[in-house]
Simulated assay, not measured.
Amino acid sequence: MIRLSAFADEISPDLDEQIAVLQSENIHYIDLRSVWKVNVLDLSNQQIQEIKQTLTAGGIGVAAIGSPIGKVPIDSSFEEHLARFDRSIEVAKALDTKYIRIFSFYPPVKEEAGSSNPAAYRDEVISHLQEMTRRARSADVVLVHENEKAIYGDIIERNVDLLQTINDPHFRSVLDPANYLQCDQVPYPDAYEATRPWLEYVHVKDVSPDGTLVVAGQGDSNWSAILQRLRQDGYDGFIALEPHLAAAGQFQGFSGPDLFRSASQALQTMLNSMDWSYE
């Protein structure tokens, strides 16, 4: 059975308001990215425990850690980033989730020879991801790679290359159709078919032809066909709302309570129309 989740910091920075809106929308899981305007990896152990207790009391489980891991230039200090990655594992364990959302690094910010050619950094990107995957395997957590614009694995070809090369059950794929559209890629059937062998997680947002972020079903992502295909293929996992309807920043989007409810209801209407049960 599929399970609905949400990047609830899109609702509000306040945890209590996040929970109230999730409850009103009958959503029982959260992709924890930030609370009180503090990134999940910067929260103290005490804050993590407070969040866990509050979520549990509200009937909300943690589906995934919405970490910013891999959202740094490939030429920045990997040793420092690994320390942050290790923190993501600690947080995942503390919150009883096996999933950590990650990215695959930016090409160098500096204007230098080769900086406009992501392929020039392939080996370094793969080496970094392999080390993180090794640590994930040891900790028994699963890294889910998001195909976000401007990171190494943003287009279908490079994403598939990463997944094929690393080839590990602890490094899997997020399907984010709207992100593919923002990279001039075809989400369905092209991206879906290419990444299907590694599919582990789904993010829901949509983009109109003029680039505006809209609720699922109102843009070019072809959500109706994607949901039908997911069901046909026996998808059994999380589908997480990340609508970005009011703002879309580098590290976090925002919708607000009302727009978030619109996004939630658009998705649930599609699921109900196809009689696909969820929890």
Rank of each mutant, 00 (worst) to 15 (best):
R87M: 09
P108D: 11
P107Q: 15
S76H: 09
E79H: 06
F105L: 06
Y106H: 13
T97L: 13
A94Q: 10
S88K: 07
R101T: 00
S76P: 02
D86R: 14
F85V: 05
L82T: 00
F85I: 05
K98F: 00
D86Q: 14
F105E: 11
R87W: 08
F85Q: 11
H81T: 05
S76R: 02
I100P: 03
A92L: 07
A94C: 05
F85N: 09
E80K: 04
I102Q: 02
E80P: 00
S88C: 14
A83E: 09
T97C: 13
F78V: 00
F105Y: 15
E79C: 00
F105A: 05
I89A: 14
E79P: 05
F105I: 08
A94M: 12
D96Y: 12
D96E: 15
R87H: 06
Y99W: 13
I102K: 01
L82R: 10
Y99I: 14
R84Y: 12
L95N: 04
I100L: 07
E80L: 11
S76G: 05
A92W: 08
K98I: 00
S77R: 04
R87N: 13
R87S: 10
A83C: 00
R101W: 05
I102H: 01
E90T: 15
D96R: 03
V91W: 09
R87F: 07
V91G: 08
E80V: 04
D75L: 13
R84K: 10
V91S: 09
E80M: 02
P107F: 15
R84Q: 09
T97Q: 14
F103Y: 13
E90R: 10
I89T: 11
H81D: 04
